[in-house]
Simulated assay, not measured.
Amino acid sequence: MRIPTSLLALTVLLAAPALAQKPQGAAPQRPAGYPRSYDATIADARAEGRVRIYANADRAELVPVVEAFKRRYPGIQVFYADLGSTEMYARFVRETRARQYSADIVWSSAMDQQVKLINDGYAQQYASPEKPALPETAVWKNMGFGVTAEPIGIVYNRRLVPAGQVPQSHQDLETLLRTRRAAYTGKVATFDPARSNTGYLYLSQDFQTTRDTRSLMEAIARTRPVLETTTGPMLAGVASGKLAIAYNVIGSYALEQARRHPDLGVVFPRDYTLVTSRIAFIAREARHPAAARLFLDFLLSREGQGQLARHSLWPVRSDVPSRRLPPGQARVVRVGPQLLVNLDRLTRARFLRDWNAILGNGQPRP
């Protein structure tokens, strides 16, 4: 679970003993299958000596990737700023417009914001040698690269939700909340789409998937739900028993927490499960473009994807061993321009008016 840090906090991952810089010897060999011209990219990256990343992946998820990257490319420092998606977007845009030193790579779970930055000219094109191994849905314009394939699920407390009542689908969840509303009043949580861009993305995708989403949201609204801006408080609330159920939770975080909290159960709805991706791109004004290419390629490589998979971030590549959803269950959110619809001001305003109406209708009448 990501622990928020100060907006200005910059974590120098190499400060940890496990990441101590290795002495530079012979030039690292290019990965197998890469073109001979990649030798020049490696040489340029070593000359640059560093790469700066803005991301909202947890340190526990990223540090092993950085360690492996350092073993392959010793001498390249990795600087990582752990930022919320909204903070990341604002900071990167502000610094870029002011021509200040900013990120070389921007890597975020806010898919629509990433696509907007790419569409607005903040990214540079790069034909990664790893592209042929990626699903078509994970690459847009050789700029935006989906690095993960993360399912969005339902989390529940095993002590508060009897085994026979655990919802296995969206319809199951709606039925449970309608038939046992009193038991779950004040015990259900979800994202607040008005305050969380991630929550807005997930809920808008639900509405695009099925018209039944409105009925489910009405059932949730009648429980007087707890509305959060991040996954962390929802998982903590369910694990402690303060909450019984959390809807639309990032599956990678939920599975990681379930390892530590035996009362935490995770369900990926069998009717459909949204699968989102953390999109990475290389900044148009990157100060260290060659090192950024190396790091992006490593994230997309089998080795990098394998490191992510070992820390609950499901890889986007199908040739990396990992847990997978059953065929037909995944509703993959494609990396591409259709996500820009979410950021249209009129569309967003109309959506949030409807959401507020659902919440208002769900409150008990005086």
Rank of each mutant, 00 (worst) to 15 (best):
P4F: 05
S6R: 05
L8H: 10
V12H: 15
A16S: 15
A18Y: 11
A20G: 10
A20K: 12
A20I: 12
P31L: 10
A32P: 00
A32M: 05
G33Y: 07
T41G: 09
D44E: 12
A47W: 01
R50T: 13
R50L: 11
Y54I: 05
R59A: 12
F69C: 08
A81I: 06
T86W: 05
E87W: 04
M88A: 13
Y89G: 04
Y89E: 11
A90W: 05
F92C: 01
R94I: 00
Y101P: 06
D112Y: 02
Q113T: 02
I118A: 03
D120I: 04
A123Y: 02
E136V: 11
T137I: 01
A138D: 09
K141Y: 02
N142R: 11
N142W: 08
A149I: 09
Q168W: 04
H170Y: 14
L173F: 08
L173W: 04
L177T: 15
T179Y: 03
R181Q: 15
K187R: 15
K187E: 11
A194Y: 04
G199Q: 03
Y200C: 07
T213C: 04
R214G: 12
A219V: 05
R224C: 07
P225N: 14
P225I: 13
T229Q: 08
P233S: 12
G237N: 10
V238E: 09
S240H: 10
G241Q: 12
I245C: 03
I245N: 00
Y247Q: 07
A258W: 02
R260Q: 02
P262W: 03
V266F: 01
F268H: 01
Y272D: 03
S277F: 01
E285L: 02
R293F: 10
F295G: 04
L296Y: 14
F298I: 14
E303G: 05
E303M: 06
L308I: 02
R310K: 14
P315S: 07
R324P: 07
L325Y: 05
P327F: 09
Q329D: 04
Q338V: 15
N342R: 08
R345E: 14
L352K: 07
L352I: 15
W355D: 10
L359M: 09
R365D: 05
